[in-house]
Design a protein around this nucleic acid. Structure first.
Lengths: 215, 215
DNA sequence: GTCTATAGATTGATAGAC
DNA sequence: GTCTATCAATCTATAGAC
């Protein structure tokens, strides 16, 4: 049973529209990830969620509006992943939690990550406002935390931006370049390989900024 | 003067066709990088290199064939960047040279990097054969070198694949996500910032695998 | 709210004069 | 080799019956 039908069964209660919209966004996320914005067609999205093409235009005014909802969703999931920066006691725990969470999200939200990468690579024509407001604020706030760690002597002096870019790049690579990794690996990564890759990424970055062994 | 005209001036000598093809590939690289394969149009490529659209089909039978030439080019540039693995005396020098070279290429070949990322993200429909042959052989050959370093005790024990993915991800991030970085930076990175980012990436990775300070 | 049918615009590719 | 003109296919978006 396709997702749209699952959502339809719950049609009697209040959240029916939200369920159907979510089914459409799920389908759109996959299609946009696999074909890019330009290569994706409303027909392909409609087919994937089992709805006539015209219904998509009933729920979302345009292809672009549907696309924006997809990009917004992964963006907010990532923002929440960094709560560890506030809630963790030490830099070691905070960074290890953040990297581990981002690796998990690369595994579970592969398609959303790809859509985001696509959008940014093409100059962020749809979500530039997010980059300039929410993402910039978020980044500077985390950079301040890292600078406090450096001032306290627990982290070696580095520009926090290069460190954050390294964490984003490395973790998201496992989603965005999953196809290349799986080709080289001759198959999908096993649970053990995901754990090992996560441990290695944590170990290299933490040791690289002078943290490993202190935790 | 557009690139196609520059190439045309040299029309009397033997390499005229090659010059024109290169001008077309240069234009195509930019357009594919900015719009993706699906979003790119032959018209946009023709406009960028100042040729009528029909001429592109004279030199390249199809949009897909032109695209493949673009992807092949960046791929071979990257392969050459790793000669340092054979020609360098120590792991420190080899890895530092490789990372530095990859960072330079992210700055000078931004568009090629984006086209490659796009292609892989969409499942490598056009260049899957490269992934399975050339890239796999290249990767395993470098992995063997890294394992020798580990056996010799100069590098901490890590699966070489996770290390290579980290280097690829981090360096290519500066090309693929250049727009995001420049938005957060409120402008393009300066020469000093590129140097600093490169040094920081080298330092974290080398220290992370137990090399920093030995060099 | 859902569907069929189609309008209106754009695209990759080609034909044929020069 | 180069150009203009155009075909055939495909796409987004909408109109209108139910």
């Amino acid at each position: 049973m396709v997702q749209a039908e699952k959502a339809e069964k719950q049609g009697s209660r209040a959240g029916a529209r939200e369920d159907l919209e979510r089914a459409i966004i799920d389908a759109a996320e996959r299609v946009f990830a696999e074909a890019g914005f330009g290569g994706a067609t409303m027909q392909a999205i409609a087919d994937r969620c089992g709805l006539p093409k015209a219904n998509l235009h009933y729920y979302f005014a345009s292809k672009q509006q549907l696309y924006r909802r997809v990009v917004e969703r992964i963006f907010h999931v990532w923002l929440e992943a960094a709560d560890s920066f506030e809630s963790s006691a030490t830099p070691e725990v905070a960074l290890r939690r953040y990297i581990t969470r981002k690796m998990e999200l690369s595994r579970t939200h592969r398609f959303g990550s790809k859509v985001w990468a696509n959008e940014v690579m093409h100059g962020a024509p749809i979500i530039q406002d997010f980059l300039e407001t929410t993402l910039r604020d978020w980044t500077e706030s985390r950079a301040r935390v890292i600078r406090r760690w450096i001032a306290a002597g627990s982290v070696r002096p580095v520009d926090p931006h290069w460190l954050l870019y390294m964490i984003w790049a490395t973790t998201q690579h496992y989603a965005d370049f999953a196809h290349q990794i799986e080709t080289l690996n001759q198959g999908p990564l096993t649970d053990a390989q995901w754990d090992e890759a996560t441990d290695t990424v944590c170990a290299i970055i933490l040791r690289g900024i002078g943290l490993e062994g202190k935790a």
